[in-house]
């Protein structure tokens, strides 16, 4: 009978799809996280390690930080610690060379600077410390572009082919044209700059099947903010598990979009 064979086909199709989905969900993959020693980067590293992924956790401290040593001790087979200052292009190139030929499913450009919490005048009009501008741009914008370029082949060689960058709604025009918090000129400028750069990058990498996602982590209670309580703060655990759900749900057709940790599409 026609209906039986068709329903049989349907069952097979469902089984196949489920199997593929299951395969991709549980299949161990590799993630590279910059700025992995604390805050958002550390939480990303912890959660991906717990999922059974290989984690290349990078930091720029002179010695391996205690947090990453502990993580590596817990997951000795899968957590690799590497030293990387995202402002140092030679270091980026050396690291890419070290991992040449190794597929990297997910690149998380997380390393970034926000500026002094105590000396806010340095980012306020009238008292701007222009000597700081370069470090914001080189860390938050140029480094991620360079790393994405340097590790492009690794990402192309992987199954998932994803690039993520941690941005912020604090650097969105939607917020700043309505109700900006005072100051933060360089930080905000660097986030606007990285947003447009990564939208371009999304278009440039589409032909390789790469998905680029720009994320806002929300207001996360990280170590640096230990003495500063900001309304609406969430735990790193909540922010990162949300962001991981968003990352998992990305389709190449949605490359170059801006989401928050709840999966809500954000305005530039």
């Amino acid at each position: 009978m026609v209906s039986t064979s068709r329903s049989k086909q349907l069952v097979q199709l469902v089984a196949l799809t489920t199997g593929l989905l299951w395969f991709s969900w549980t299949e161990a993959a590799t993630v590279l996280v910059t700025g992995a020693n604390r805050g958002i980067g550390l939480e990303f590293s912890k959660q991906y390690a717990a999922k059974g992924w290989k984690v290349i956790a990078t930091h720029r401290r002179p010695e391996n930080p205690a947090t990453l040593k502990a993580l590596s001790a817990k997951y000795p087979a899968s957590v690799v610690i590497e030293r990387l200052d995202v402002q140092d292009h030679a270091m980026i190139e050396d690291l890419a060379k070290k991992f040449e030929g190794e597929p990297i499913d997910l690149l998380i450009n997380n390393a970034g600077i926000f500026g002094s919490l105590t000396n806010r005048q340095e980012q306020m009009f009238g008292t701007l410390d222009h000597t700081l501008f370069d470090s914001f741009m080189h860390t938050n914008v140029l480094g991620p572009i360079k790393i994405s370029e340097a590790f492009l082949e690794n990402i192309k060689a992987s199954d998932r082919k994803q690039i993520v960058i941690v941005s912020a709604t604090a650097g969105s025009f939607a917020l700043n044209s309505r109700n900006p918090y005072p100051g933060g000129y360089f930080y905000k400028a660097s986030k606007a700059a990285l947003n447009i750069a990564f939208v371009s990058l999304a278009k440039d990498t589409k032909r390789f099947g790469i998905t680029v996602t720009i994320l806002s982590p929300g207001q996360v209670k990280v170590e640096k903010l230990a003495d500063h309580t900001i309304p609406g703060q969430i735990s790193p655990e909540e922010s990162i598990s949300g962001m991981i759900r968003v990352i998992e749900s990305q389709m190449p057709t949605a490359s170059g979009r801006f989401f928050d940790y709840k999966g809500k599409s954000r305005q530039w």
Partner: peptide, 21 residues
Amino acid sequence: QFPALYFYRSSKSALNMVMVN
């Protein structure tokens, strides 16, 4: 629309942002 001018675009987006502020 088409990918290009990474630094130039970043600079104009950054300029827009500081000037909005």
